[in-house]
Amino acid sequence: MAVVAQPVFDWQPVLDVHVELFEPLATGVSVALVPRWREDSQGLRRANIMPKTEPVPMMLWLREAQAMRVREGIFTGLASLASDVLLIVEDGALDVALAHERPLSELKRLLRRNRVLFMVLRTRDELRERGWTEFLEALGLPFLGTCR
């Protein structure tokens, strides 16, 4: 079964370095990091990002009372995902980021290169109220507008 990054807890020091990005977040909110693909029982490549899917291990960055913590979780589809923000990760992309001197900057680059895809599960106002502005802006994700 595909795992998003291994071992996921190696990401804890990265979150600790960027404490200022996570400080404004409301307790209990999280980022889910889910592998984009999995192999089914017949060895076929399947997309995980579906309303419902086979259980897939995911990494969570969960805002606990004191700080942002890395946790393990199980992704069973979008319909049951409680996170506010979802990062969908191509095989190996997070390991590339972690190997980098500044993993969050590398993550931003991977987002731009579509090795990591980004989705939100809340409205813009809810995201703002829950304190996501700093984090999303740091990843270069525009809060407003589109059209290129």
């Binding site: 309303p51 979008l78 980004f118 939100v120 599960l121 813009r124 589109t146």
Partner: peptide, 9 residues
């Protein structure tokens, strides 16, 4: 289908 937004806008 319920496929979340890729832009917070």
């Amino acid at each position: 289908s319920v496929v979340p937004q890729t832009l917070p806008h």
